[in-house]
Nucleic acid binder design. Structure first.
Lengths: 329, 329
DNA sequence: AGAGAGTATGACAACGTTGTCCGACCGTCG
DNA sequence: CGACGGTCGGACAACGTTGTCATACTCTCT
């Protein structure tokens, strides 16, 4: 700016005024300044500007599990889009489910003075964020609640969704249902499992632990788990897969062996309707999830000081049938 | 920092030293400072710090078409991951293929003094970036080259990929091949179409314009296009779909009508191997694309002043067969 | 004991910007 | 002719840090 001022033969402040479109600058002088700006390729330094004004950085931070996962990238996209309408950019980072990494990233984002934080929490203690919240960086949790902190959260009705999934299987007459899940360390998995158990209890199905299989991390282990369970005496006649990676693995294995076991999966995914066998899934509106959370965050940024809220969004059973048609095509 | 200094009864500079882990501070004094830091919940202001030191902002900017698209979110993820190893965060934004928006976003990122820019270009003139590059913000283009600017680019061999796809179909005896594409305004589409035409020429196939169908934006229009082309007299016996959205639409339509027309698609996608009919695709390593581009960018950030390079990465025909088996299961 | 080297601490300016205030200039009116 | 209000331009401080330099102190060696 000093260079521009020198070139235009005006004072620093006048350049500032022109650049920020403030009034009370003569036309001729403004033109001189603009010419100098163009000649030098001057760009206002956003950091210095924000620093001086004590102003917001026009940036919000997003911590998710993994950016490459469609669920999270959809969230990132919706949030970025809503942020853009406020000329705000999105600083996003993946925690990879690592609490230590999550905390480091969150601290880093705070030190950059983001206007607000949107967090899909991985850690089990977010108390360190309390001081930041007090100092004016609002936090909204997404998909899972934060712990040891009073903050807004936007969640899905995981429990209800799983309950409905099992009910659908029970209605079809199934009494032996295999439940495949990742780890109960993850909040959403716990909720989904609890929902399945609710439905088992309602149906008076003796809940037999042997039919719940944990530690299913990816499609490969899901396929192996399905194969293994079907090889047992008195095997399940139906499966509930508690996330989409598991669902994909289970589909693949059931299809490969031509099994007509029923299958319901949690999480809809992009090509689920094109799977080689019908696939009923428990879906939800990821975009709405992101939208609500981002709305809440911006409301806080705009000064909403009301008590923290927890919003729970519904899930929906997308019924596309349970078993392969008896006579293919 | 002033508050911390006052509380600890030391000077501002001593706090700065402790916070930055500089040597020459007595243990006792450092402890006092750290206690004060903890009590006040002090977080160093990264913006002020970067401003003072004229230092980098430890941020890189990424402009892509749309964050929710798996291709781009994979790129974002790889880049973010590599950036993290340098304690650098990723500021990402979607251009939505809008040149005006792209330019605004790029200018905004520059004004935030990002350390470097990674751009999947949408616009047709990037000359405005030249001054920024001169002023030390390196730019690397990804997937498509920039225009009116000398900068690094990491591209895919789109032309060669399409050529191989058509060759595969020709080898199977197909002489009437429908080519489905979005818009020739997009650089990658032009390249892919050119590759297909190369192969047609090589095979001595009279290139008949009626078999090329443009303006196919999404799976819906792709399905409609396939239906329409098959309804013509002397219809194609095979299709080449020039991106994955088109491929999905084509699969769906061919499957729905039980057609055994052959199909090759450009772009691999997540569940392509689980499609209801075999699907041969022209794939490539998206992660490698991102990796090379990010490497190049960091090399520039670290001061590499050599001549701009253009890297072209190979594509690969993932052959899973062309037509449905005659006797289903 | 005094010089010299090294360690610990602090005062101050500067990074690039903007808010505040002050003064210069213009025209108008009593 | 002097006072007044409005417009325009600039000097200066401040935002929160850190680099530079100066100072005070401690230790070692001659």
């Amino acid at each position: 700016m000093v260079d521009v001022a020198r070139l235009a033969g005006v004072s620093l402040k006048t350049v500032s005024r022109v650049v920020n479109g403030e009034p009370h600058v003569q036309r001729a002088m403004a033109d001189r300044v603009l010419a100098a700006v163009a000649e030098l390729g001057f760009q206002r330094n956003h950091m210095a500007s924000a620093l001086r004004a004590g102003r917001a950085s026009a940036t919000i931070g997003l911590i998710i599990e993994e950016l490459a996962n469609p669920f999270y990238s959809t969230i990132a996209h919706v949030t970025a889009e809503m942020a853009r309408e406020r000329d705000t950019l999105l600083l996003s980072a993946s925690s990879e489910e690592d609490p230590v990494r999550e905390e480091r990233l969150l601290r880093d984002l705070c030190s950059r003075r983001v206007d607000g934080l949107l967090v899909v929490p991985a850690g089990c203690d977010h108390s360190f964020l309390n001081s930041q919240v007090e100092m004016g960086i609002p936090v909204v949790f997404l998909d899972r609640p934060g712990t040891n902190i009073e903050a807004d959260a936007v969640l899905l009705d995981n429990r209800g969704g799983a309950r409905n999934g099992v009910r659908r299987l029970v209605a079809e007459g199934h009494r032996r249902i295999g439940v495949l899940l990742d780890s109960v360390d993850v909040h959403t998995m716990r909720e989904r499992l609890a929902g399945a158990q609710d439905a088992f209890a309602d149906a008076g199905i003796g809940y037999d632990g042997a039919l719940v299989r944990g530690g299913v991390r990816d499609p490969g282990t899901a396929a192996a788990a399905v194969a293994d369970m079907l090889a047992q005496p008195n095997p399940p006649t139906a499966f509930l897969a508690l996330n989409n990676r598991i669902t994909v693995g289970a589909v693949q294995e059931l299809w490969r062996r031509g099994s007509d076991a029923a299958l319901v999966g949690f999480d809809d995914f992009e090509l689920s309707h094109l799977m080689p066998r019908p696939l009923t899934v428990i879906g939800y509106d990821t975009r709405e999830l992101a939208r609500r959370a981002t709305q809440l965050l911006f409301a806080r940024i705009d000064g909403d000081r009301s008590r923290p809220r927890t919003v729970v969004l519904p899930t929906e059973l997308l019924d596309r049938g349970l078993t392969p048609a008896r006579t293919p095509r």
